[in-house]
């Protein structure tokens, strides 16, 4: 089976500064891949590459076997740590935006049956993430956790091939974070999502993921630290039973982060 997303010998360099080197990675359909690593190791660069916000200096990135277009598109959904909802749209409008783009690319206006359908779809997904009672609220009136729920609903409405999460729960209180873990796991199972999540929370990575990838530098030159980039140094496939134990080497690597 073709992997949903594959990185083939990907390098990212800025001048002589190497951020990522020789990254090979395949994300299978239905996988929940967590990416962990110390700060500044290039975790987020992974997501920027997958989004198309950035192009690799060398190597190629494939989505469903085809070369990834060099800009964001509706085949990849995203939830950022902050600012991923539109402050000037109500909760309902935020989620209906995807349908507007798809069905009314010129005016952004929906009418009649298409509008009713888009609205019904949006309401359904909002109820699923627990925002059914706040359809008319503006994001500013929502708590941080609610805003992230909204961002997730908004991303799911276009049925992306892969959902990219960039520290999605990093700004939330611990209790809220647990609720969000439950929510995302439920959605992942129910919708059969493929998820790539970047996090600095090692426990979260192991709790949610079916696979954890640790990103760090394999080599280190003390005189020119920027000359070696990061790559996937560990790759743990997990089944439900092995999820509790976090391997020592990973715990050691990210404890300072």
């Amino acid at each position: 089976m073709t992997p949903v997303l594959s990185f083939r010998d990907v390098w990212v360099e800025y001048g002589d500064h190497v951020v990522l080197e020789k990254v090979n990675l395949e994300v299978a359909k239905g996988a929940f891949v967590s990416i962990v690593g110390p700060s500044g190791a290039g975790k987020s660069t992974f997501l920027r590459l997958a989004l198309g916000q950035e192009a690799p200096s060398r190597g190629s990135i494939l989505l469903d076997g085809a070369t990834l277009p060099p800009e964001p598109g509706p085949d990849r959904g995203v939830v950022f740590q902050r600012y991923s909802v539109f402050p000037h749209m109500s909760v309902l409008e935020n989620v209906m935006f995807g349908a507007r783009c798809e069905q009314a690319p010129l005016t952004g206006l929906l009418v009649g049956a298409t509008r009713r359908q888009a609205r019904a779809d949006a309401v359904a997904i909002l109820q699923q993430v627990g925002l059914g009672a706040a359809l008319k609220a503006f994001p500013r009136a929502l708590s941080g956790g609610m805003q992230q729920r909204l961002a997730i609903a908004q991303a799911l409405i276009t049925r992306p091939r892969i959902l990219l999460l960039d520290e999605p729960f990093g700004a939330l209180d611990p209790g809220v974070r647990l609720d969000m873990h439950e929510l995302i796991t439920g959605l992942w199972r129910e919708h059969g999502l493929t998820i790539l999540m970047v996090t600095h929370d090692i426990k979260e990575a192991f709790k949610l993921g079916t696979r954890v990838i640790a990103v760090d530098k394999r080599r280190h030159d003390p005189h020119a630290p920027h000359r070696y980039g990061s790559t996937a140094v560990y790759d743990f496939p997990l089944d439900d039973k092995r999820k509790t134990a976090i391997p020592k080497e990973i715990a050691a690597m990210t404890s300072g982060a």
Binding site: P72, F80, R82, P105
Partner: peptide, 25 residues
């Protein structure tokens, strides 16, 4: 925020729709 602009694109918005529906309001 760039996040908003990228998000709009992942929802299928063209340059025109980003301007009309995200930036203009």
């Amino acid at each position: 925020p760039e996040e908003q602009i990228v998000k709009a694109q992942t929802l299928g918005a063209s340059t025109w729709l980003v301007a009309l529906k995200v930036a203009l309001p």
